[in-house]
């Protein structure tokens, strides 16, 4: 049947587009979840970009040296968490301006990875490919998009409902939210506020580190300077767009991924409708547009308040 040929081709395209879209969203998603956890606990960490890069380099280096995927991912998570620890020390212990401390971390991450990674430029390394999930991967379209992905992409997809549930229904989630909303009330209830904030910041750093590892091990295997290309900043914008909710971040991240996939598709088809640089700039511009939309719509804004104590220093003695 002619419909078969026609539809089959289209579906094939759609499936691979979907796969690229979901894949492209992974790093942004992991970083955004990490930032949500940290911000929900009251710590603003603008060092995502630096942590992504550090995670990417550490994961790549460990992977290239040992060939062990678990060690590579572990190294990436540790690198991200350690970088976050530095920020947590400045933000939570010393109480300095969290914006500046986060920027410093982004700078440091970009600079250090540039210096440390110079010998790894273009070097071959470990590649974490797709792990299709048996029967499910054969489903039309969705199978390719959702069940034929690298390990970290599955993590990115699963983490949204898990985090969402944890915030709503567990003691730990309650404690984290309380630290971000009203630290002194949490402290009065016996919550070790600073410990929780340290933990959440480091957890966020570990997730960002994994996001970085995804970039250097699965997405564009190999190390290159500044390979995250601003995905850390996009993740921060995503957190605002998602109004600090993991499930909405998932939607935002997938939107970003779809845009990236569309850009690839345009490029391969040689579409001259939009100049290439415009296509490459589209994710950044669209993120700004989405932020503007959230701000402009009173209805959206009503539900989009940041945690009340976000970025605020807490010290038990006042």
């Amino acid at each position: 049947m002619s419909a078969d040929v026609f539809g089959g081709l289209d579906l094939q395209n759609l499936a691979s587009l979907g796969q690229i879209a979901v894949k492209s969203s992974t790093a942004v998603l992991l970083a955004a979840y990490g930032e949500i956890v940290a911000e929900r606990a009251g710590v603003l960490n603008l060092g995502l970009e630096g942590m992504l890069l550090l995670g990417a380099l550490a994961g790549f280096a460990a992977g290239a040296a040992t060939g062990d995927p678990l060690l590579a991912l572990g190294a990436a998570a540790c690198a991200g968490a350690l970088a976050a620890l530095l920020h947590a020390f400045f933000a939570v212990t010393l109480g300095v301006n969290q914006v500046l401390s986060g920027l410093a971390l982004s700078l440091l991450g970009a600079g250090l990875t540039g210096v440390l990674g110079r010998d790894l430029l273009g070097a071959p390394g470990l590649v974490l490919g797709s792990l299709p999930i048996a029967a499910l991967a054969d489903l039309p379209v969705l199978g390719q998009a959702l069940f034929n992905q690298p390990l970290l992409t599955y993590l990115a997809l699963l983490l949204a409902p898990v985090l969402s549930w944890a915030f709503a229904s567990t003691r730990l989630g309650l404690v984290v939210r309380a630290c971000g909303e009203n630290a002194s009330a949490a402290y009065a209830s016996g919550v070790p506020v600073r410990l929780v904030r340290f933990g959440c910041t480091c957890f966020g750093g570990a997730l960002a580190g994994l996001g970085g590892a995804f970039l250097s091990l699965s997405y564009t295997p190999g190390w290159k300077e500044g390979l995250s290309a601003g995905q850390g900043w996009i993740a921060i914008a995503m957190v605002i767009f998602a109004t600090w909710r993991p499930l909405r971040a998932l939607c935002g991240g997938l939107l970003f991924g779809a845009l990236t996939a569309a850009q690839f598709s345009f490029q391969t088809q040689g579409a001259e409708l939009v100049p290439v640089w415009g296509l490459r700039a589209a994710p950044y511009l669209l993120t700004i547009a989405v932020l503007t939309l959230v701000q402009a719509s009173a209805r959206l804004r009503r539900y989009s308040g940041p945690p009340a104590n976000l970025g605020r220093f807490f010290h038990p003695e006042g």
């Binding site: 400045f90 010393l94 300095v96």
Partner: peptide, 16 residues
């Protein structure tokens, strides 16, 4: 990029 690392470290130092 070494300059970036230097600036980052300097900013941390200034914050301290």
């Amino acid at each position: 990029t070494a300059v970036l690392a230097l600036e980052g470290a300097l900013l941390f130092g200034a914050l301290l």
